[in-house]
C-alpha cells in the first residue's frame, strides 16, 4: 500500500547526505579492517604454532623504529582531526596547515620505514634470501608476514598521503569549507584507520621479543 505525494521526485545527484557519506566510508573502513584482520588471523595461528621462533625473530626487529613510527602516526592522527576542527570553525588556513603537517608526518613515517627495511635487507633478511631460508620455518613465516603486513600498511600510508593531499587542494579551492567538509572527514577517517592498524602491528611485531 502506498501513495504518491504531490512532490516531484528530486534529482538524486543533487541530493546531499553527509551522514550517508560517512556511513559509506565506515563500511569501506570495515573492509580494510578485515583485510588486515585476515593477516592477523594468519599471524595468530603461526605465532601459536611457532611460539619460540616468533619470539626469536622479533628480537631482530628494532623496537625503536617501531616506537618512533607509532608516535609519528599518533601525532599525525591528532593533526588531521585538528584540521577538521579548524575547518568547522572556519579557520581555513589553520586547517590547511594541519593537513600539510599530517602529510609531513606521513612522509616521515615512510622515511623511517625505508631505513628500517634497508637495514633488514643489508642483513640479508628479505623474502627468498639465502640468509632467511637458512632460518627456521617459524622465522621465515615471521618475516614473510612482517614484510607483507608492514608493506601493505605502508601502501595505505601512501594512499593516505594522496588522499589528504587532494583534500588540501580542495580546501584551498574552497570545495572543502566550513559548511561542507565531509570529504575531509572521510579522508581523516581513513587516516585514523591506518593509525589503528599500526597500533596493533607495533606490539605484535616489535614487542613480543
Amino acid at each position: 500500500m502506498s501513495s504518491t505525494t504531490a512532490t516531484p521526485i528530486a534529482d538524486p545527484h543533487l541530493h546531499r547526505d553527509d551522514e550517508g557519506s560517512r556511513l559509506g566510508m565506515w563500511l569501506f573502513l570495515f573492509t580494510e579492517l578485515i583485510l588486515f584482520g585476515g593477516m592477523f588471523l594468519v599471524f595468530a595461528v603461526y605465532k601459536f604454532i611457532h611460539y619460540e621462533e616468533f619470539h626469536a625473530a622479533a628480537r631482530e626487529l628494532n623496537s625503536m623504529f617501531g616506537a618512533l613510527n607509532t608516535i609519528i602516526l599518533l601525532t599525525s592522527s591528532l593533526t588531521i582531526v585538528l584540521s577538521i576542527v579548524a575547518i568547522q570553525k572556519g579557520q581555513k588556513l589553520l586547517s590547511i596547515f594541519f593537513q600539510i603537517i599530517t602529510i609531513f608526518f606521513a612522509l616521515g613515517f615512510m622515511v623511517n620505514k625505508y631505513f628500517e627495511w634497508s637495514a633488514k635487507f643489508s642483513h640479508g633478511i628479505y623474502p627468498g634470501s639465502e640468509t632467511l631460508l637458512e632460518k627456521s620455518s617459524g622465522e621465515i613465516l615471521f618475516f614473510g608476514l612482517y614484510y607483507v603486513m608492514t608493506g601493505l600498511h605502508g601502501l595505505h600510508v601512501v594512499i593516505g598521503v594522496l588522499l589528504i593531499g587532494y583534500m588540501t587542494y580542495e580546501t584551498i579551492k574552497n570545495k572543502v569549507n566550513s559548511d561542507k567538509y565531509v570529504r575531509l572527514e572521510s579522508a581523516g577517517l581513513y587516516w585514523h584507520l591506518v593509525d589503528i592498524i599500526w597500533i596493533f602491528l607495533f606490539p605484535l611485531f616489535y614487542l613480543i621479543a
Binding site: 573492509t31 588486515f36 593477516m39 623474502p127 608476514l145 607483507v148
Partner: peptide, 24 residues
C-alpha cells in the same frame, strides 16, 4: 562487505608468495 576482504587478502598473499617467494 565483511567477508569479501578475507578472500581479497588471501588471494593477494598467494600472489605475493608466487611473485616474491614470501613464506606464508
Amino acid at each position: 562487505v565483511l567477508a569479501t576482504p578475507i578472500i581479497g587478502i588471501t588471494l593477494l598473499l598467494v600472489t605475493f608468495e608466487r611473485l616474491f617467494s614470501v613464506g606464508i
